[in-house]
Design a protein around this nucleic acid. Structure first.
Lengths: 388, 388
DNA sequence: CGAAATATCGTAAACGTTTTAGATGTACGC
DNA sequence: GCGTACATCTAAAACGTTTACGATATTTCG
């Protein structure tokens, strides 16, 4: 029989079931359940990294003191502080940010959701965000939705789970439900919507002058003598598409030009859509004499196509695009664009977010519009298209 | 006098110093120190987010049971599991990844250090990394060194502090000390070096065919009849610069062409360096008849400059570049490049890293080379430069 | 010298999980 | 009805910090 490990009696000990593979016993004498000790192989640290506890043990002091020394708090002598700091360097101690964040309820981390890093606008904005974040003591977790609404929702959930202090988000072109944004707000997490914003929810926003930009570009085309102006937009549900279309319409109306639906094209903004849309335009009975594209890259694709067809730019067709892609300046003819300053957008967004994080309840969402600039180049300058 | 809060005696109570602003007392009677109770305003949760404890309280069960239900573990009844899951949805419970990571000693997070997102190569590689990471159940923290060695070191330290499971790193052009990499390895954190690697430390690496790529490009120029071939590299200390220079030299040697130092130029790879270096080349007594640039963008800048000077491409000077920039195909003339497939590099890097994370001790660092492809376009095709 | 003030330290709770070890109730076979 | 097996639950430790609270030793001062 088995001896009870508590009262050492042998009589009253009976088997009392299996517990995770090992026989369990019950001692009636002392009313005690027990399992035979499997050799208990002990500790061995999980992470392998030095902790504050290791430091404390090594120095023979308490963890509280070590913590105070490392964080330059009061209630500690100069000597102890020095000793601790030296030991920290010796043992290569690096604080565990996970534990710190968990304890403080603040992660000093900002989540950024971007639809497509490969678009120069986002790459540039992101670079600036990173820089400002670093300067302000924040880390950044970048999530890439890849233009998928589904992944965008997953991304925001991940960021919530990571307990980021705030989120910077630009919607995927697919996105047309915004429940996940409400979610974030309900959780009390700061959020700033930039570039591709949604107007259905009252969040803080950083946008560029979409209306003015497209108005200026189209008016510029009109001033150059264009009367049949084609416009290539993003997806129809896209808020930005709508705004830029509004700018287009306003410019036409101001100059008394009739609006023709055949000249309005929506697209998925994929890589060679420019060429395809250009084909469509040229197939019309009265092809446009001026084209405005929402993505400068598409305008350049069109110009490549136009050059193949020996169409003179800008004499026969003039081109303008939104956003100063790096190609715009180098391409020949150089492309007239409305520069929406990705760096400024990035900077304004993250600063607004940090402000939001700091103020919290006191922060009232508002919309900031970044001033853009019309850059006139050869693709539309009819008077002197050969000048540099 | 003050009454002792323990023995209620009044006699032996004396002041015994100040403790953080409040008067402290000592009772000789019962040998007890105390401070008058400041009104203790209590709890109010820190984060405002629902925790597993809230769920447990709400359901009147233990946290262990809740945890098992959420994680689909055994030792739980179907009913309880269902109840818990429903409550979790009701209360909108989201697990705290910080706490999970801290507990498990694994974060399921990968840190990526990138010198410059604005370079298309890195943007594309990053996009692919994100996708694979998501599919494999990892998150990504992106750090942007902005080509600064100092920030690169800061970045790696941050990632260590975040306890990421692994690091993907491409060096800043400035970087010439690699102590921080040794640090990472010493900590037992998985690391994979990609694209801009260092050859001084034995890490896992993913590179492209730098040698073969530049060899092929230069040999192609030679085959097109070029004999005076200029090369524009990155910084001299740059490992990749050296390798690509080696490929250049090998091609020249194979075809018996003399190496002329004037044709070798190092640069900081800034935005308009192409134009400046072209000026230099043209100022030589014998300007090159073929130019190879390490960054395709620079080749295009040069071509812009060449066109201004009415130099015929490729008849008078042919151009080739490393990396299939999106400009390369659209520009006129289209640029001959060696495509090093950023997507493949991104994918291979992160897969190698995950493998490294999983195998740990058993993982032996090795170098994987991604096969590239020579894409011949009009900037170098002397026989039929007008063909599409 | 004794009381009050200060400087410096330690203890333990808390942050939100997971997990090990043990407890309890019920079913089953004879 | 007893011994056993199983299903299901709870308590508590652990992860690495910070911090409120209290303890102790030293200094100051009349």
């Amino acid at each position: 029989m088995q001896k009870c490990i508590k009262c050492n009696s042998v009589d009253g000990v009976i088997k009392s079931g299996f517990l995770r593979g090992s026989q369990r016993f019950y001692c009636k004498q002392c009313d005690f359940n027990f399992v035979l000790d499997t050799e208990s192989i002990k500790p061995i640290k999980k992470s392998g990294q030095v902790t504050i506890v290791d430091l404390a043990k090594h120095l023979g002091i308490s963890v509280a003191t070590v913590s105070r020394a490392l964080n330059d708090k009061s209630d500690i002598s100069q000597l102890t502080r020095k000793t601790v700091l030296e030991a920290a360097i010796m043992l290569d101690y690096k604080p565990n940010l996970l534990a710190q964040s968990l304890n403080k309820g603040k992660t000093n981390t900002i989540g950024v959701v971007i639809p497509n890093v490969e678009l120069p606008f986002f790459a540039t904005a992101l670079a600036k965000m990173q820089q400002v974040a670093l300067e302000s003591g924040y880390r950044i977790i970048v999530c890439h939705s890849g233009e998928s609404a589904e992944i965008e929702v997953l991304n925001t959930e991940t960021l919530i789970a990571c307990r980021v202090d705030g989120i910077l988000l630009s919607h995927a072109k697919e996105t047309n439900s915004f429940e996940h944004i409400k979610h974030v707000i309900d959780k009390g997490i700061a959020i700033v919507n930039f570039d591709r914003v949604c107007n259905e929810i009252d969040t803080a926003k950083v946008i560029h002058e979409d209306f003015k930009g497209s108005f200026d570009l189209v008016e510029h085309l009109i001033q150059q003598g264009c009367r049949k102006i084609g416009i290539m937009l993003g997806p129809e549900k896209f808020y930005i598409s709508q705004i830029r279309l509004a700018g287009y319409k306003a410019a036409l109306e101001k100059h008394g030009i009739e609006l023709i639906n055949d000249y309005i094209v929506y697209s998925e903004m994929n890589k060679n859509d420019g060429g395809r849309v250009f084909d469509y335009f040229m197939s019309l009975p009265h092809p446009p004499d001026g084209i405005f594209t929402m993505l400068s890259r598409n305008a350049i694709e069109m110009m490549v196509e136009a050059k193949k067809r020996k169409i003179k730019i800008p004499e026969e067709i003039a081109f303008v695009g939104f956003g100063d892609d790096s190609l715009a300046e180098l391409f020949e003819p150089s492309l007239t664009v409305f520069n929406h300053f990705p760096t400024k957008v990035g900077e304004a967004s993250i600063k607004m977010l940090i402000d939001n994080i700091n103020k919290r309840e006191a922060f009232l969402p508002y919309t900031q519009s970044i001033q853009g600039e019309l850059i006139i180049r050869n693709s539309s300058k009819k008077d002197c298209s050969e000048v540099d």
